[in-house]
Amino acid sequence: MYEPQADASGVAVAPEQKPRKVAIICSKGSLDMAYPGLILANAARMMGIEAVVFFTFWGLDIITKKKVDHLHPGIVGNPSVPMPTMIAGLPGMEAMAGAMMKKQMAKLDIPSVREMLELLDASGAELYGCKMAMDMFGLTKDDLVPEVKEVITAMEFFEKSEGAQTIFV
C-alpha cells in the first residue's frame, strides 16, 4: 500500500522503489524454445531489469554441458514447420533442421545458446537448475555449465523471484 513519506524537512518524497525484476522459467529443451527465455532475460538485463532464470524439466538441456551445443528445433508435430510430420520424424531430420537453423542464425550474427548463457552470466542474471528435475534425470551440478549459480527447489525459486514478473517458456 502507498504511504506518503516525508524527508527531514517535511517535504513529501516518493517511497523508494524496488528495482524491476523478471523471473523466467525455461521448461523446454528444443532450440526454438531455448532462445525466447534466454533472449528475454538478456534484454531485461540490458535495460537494467534484474533477471532470474529457472531451468526445469527439458529446459535443463539448455544448461547441461553435454547438450547445450546440440539442441535441435522441435519439428515433429509442430504445425508451424512447413514439412509433413511423417517426414519431419525421419531419422536425422531434426539434426538437419537444427544445422540449417544454426547456420542461418550465425549468418544473422545471433549468438549461440552457449554464448547466450555466457552473456547472461556476465550481465549478472542468475541462472538456476531445478533440483527435482535434476534428480529425475540423474544430473548433478557438475553436469551443468559453470554459469549456473545454484541448484534450487521450487520453493526456493519463489523466494528468489519475489516481486518479479514471471514468464513461463
Binding site: A43, R45, M46, M47, G48, I49, P111, L119, A122, S123, G124
Partner: peptide
C-alpha cells in the same frame, strides 16, 4: 549498436559494460 556489438567493437568485456552502466548498458 546492441550490447554485444559494443563489447566486440569497443573491445570492452560485457561484464565491464554492466559495471560502467549498472542501470542498463544496452540502453544507457
Amino acid at each position: 549498436p546492441g550490447l554485444r556489438r559494443i563489447a566486440q567493437g569497443a573491445e570492452i568485456p560485457v561484464k565491464e559494460l554492466y559495471q560502467l552502466f549498472p542501470k542498463g548498458p544496452g540502453i544507457l
